[in-house]
């Protein structure tokens, strides 16, 4: 009889304790970070070839974004240089055609 009273008192006490305890807020992206850590740990456990390493690097958004930006910048810069050269050559030929008859060149 006394034991039953003690058990119900423990349950009440436990409930009161749970209510009074404050849980701190979880950091942002807690769940994503947990999964990422689990994935990283699993990936580290598997032996990866250089091709897999490269492929995983390419698929990382930061790397892919940087590579696309770099390629576009290099392409635009090289294209501008070539375009300037072509425009210069065209202008030179225009002048030459105006002052030097083709039969004399």
């Amino acid at each position: 009889m006394k034991k039953e009273n003690f058990n119900s008192a423990d349950a009440k006490l436990g409930a009161l304790l749970r209510e009074s305890r404050s849980f701190p807020a979880l950091p942002p992206r807690f769940q994503q970070n947990v999964w990422r850590r689990i994935e990283d740990a699993e990936a580290a456990a598997l032996p990866a070839s250089w091709l897999d390493v490269l492929a995983s690097l390419i698929l990382r958004p930061h790397f892919a974004g940087a590579a696309v930006a770099a390629l576009m910048l290099i392409g635009v810069f090289a294209g501008m240089q070539e375009g300037r050269q072509m425009a210069r050559h065209e202008a030179q030929m225009n002048y030459l055609a105006a002052v030097a008859p083709h039969s004399l060149r």
Partner: peptide, 13 residues
């Protein structure tokens, strides 16, 4: 991406 940006900028310039 490289070829596209190269030709577009070349033509534009």
């Amino acid at each position: 991406i490289f070829v596209g940006s190269y030709f577009v900028s070349q033509r534009a310039t």
